[in-house]
Amino acid sequence: MTQTTPPGWHPDPGHSGIGTLQERWWDGSRWTDQLRIPPATVRRRRIRIGAGIAAAVVVLAAVGGGAYVLGAGSDDRADSSASPSAPSESPRMPGAPGGGGQDGGQGGGGQDPDQQPMPQTEDGYATDAASGISIPVPDGWTGQSGPIGAGVQTGEYACPGAESETCVRGGVTSAPAQALKIDATTAKAAAQADIKANAEESYGEKIYGGITSHEELRSEAVTVAGQKGYAVRWKVVTKNGDDGYVESLAFPSPNVKGMLVVLRSGFDINAKAPKLSVLDDITKGIKEAEGAGSAAGSGETA
């Protein structure tokens, strides 16, 4: 860039060629540390989110303790802007309920080709290319890799309150914090900011009749993929169906400088659901994705 180039978001000149190409903010005279995922890549979708997150172009089945339904309705469109956003803004991610079909199927006209999940790039792992991490897939679970986000889940069943939709007994998903519109600079702040939204999206709305109360079980520093992060875990009580455990865990990406990754988890409290210890095992097994390189350093601490 030259000094005559106006400030704005431009393709990151430091992109290694691995993972999703991000944009970096040019302030008119120099490159800053502000990064974002291009809005054209992060589509607005009509989604009901379970314990997982809306991973933009990743099609996951039901994730977490709640329903995950990806719709392809008439309001699906690329997020675009007439002028560059300020560097404090992050790409908008969908969160509105509605649309879609059972088992994450497409409603209203089939599935977009660019909504197909990536094949698993590492045996036994679901890889989040944007975040540069791989999540282990426990025996009997299914996993989906994606260019933005990844997830693992188990135990499909008809959702209470909406039996035409599918819920699962346990699930874990990941995404860059900015994709969830979390404006935080530390792992602790990101986890604390996300836990309420995670709980409501996992066990709220008409599916579970809402959350009547919650108990904080955990709020502490953790290490994930060699990075210093922070986790907040709640036990939630619902009006309909099973109660559940939800956890929001944030940590710096092991290979993208300045990026925080958020891991959302949800486990039903039910004899058919996986034990909570499985969540801890999954977290311990998260690693830097193969071939992702190492450009981030240790990042922010909790």
Rank of each mutant, 00 (worst) to 15 (best):
A295C: 03
P138D: 03
D27K: 13
R24Y: 04
V152Q: 02
G64K: 07
A221S: 15
I148V: 15
M259K: 00
G241I: 06
S294T: 10
K287M: 08
R264E: 11
P94A: 01
V59Y: 03
A187C: 00
E215L: 14
V168Y: 07
D280N: 13
M118L: 15
H15F: 15
A187F: 01
I195K: 02
E300F: 03
E220V: 07
T41A: 09
P119R: 00
E247N: 06
R30E: 01
T127V: 13
K206N: 02
T283P: 02
V232L: 04
Q102W: 03
T238R: 02
G297T: 14
D103I: 08
S298M: 08
D33Y: 06
G99Q: 13
G101R: 10
I195Q: 05
D75I: 12
G209W: 07
A295Q: 12
D123C: 08
E122W: 04
G100T: 10
V224D: 07
G291A: 01
A190K: 03
G99A: 15
N240I: 12
N270H: 15
T2G: 15
A295S: 14
S80A: 15
Q144A: 14
G95A: 13
P176I: 12
A289M: 00
P138G: 07
V42E: 14
G155N: 10
I195T: 04
C159V: 03
H15I: 01
W141E: 02
S85N: 12
W234R: 10
T121D: 14
D139L: 08
V262F: 05
K275F: 11
I269C: 03
N198V: 04
Y245E: 00
D280L: 07
G170C: 06
P13D: 09
Y230D: 10
G161W: 07
A40W: 10
G52E: 07
S90L: 09
G104D: 11
G297K: 06
H214T: 06
I53K: 05
S90E: 02
S248R: 06
S202M: 12
I286Q: 09
T283L: 11
T301H: 14
S219I: 04
A190L: 02
T173V: 03
E216L: 06
I53R: 08
R264I: 00
E163A: 13
T223G: 04
Q106V: 15
E216G: 01
R233K: 14
R77Q: 08
G209A: 09
I148D: 13
Y245Q: 01
S74V: 07
S265T: 07
I133F: 14
A82P: 06
T301W: 05
A162G: 08
P136S: 14
I211P: 01
A62I: 00
V261Y: 07
G104C: 13
Q144D: 09
K239E: 02
I207P: 00
S219Q: 00
V222Q: 15
Y125K: 14
E215V: 15
A295Y: 10
Y208P: 07
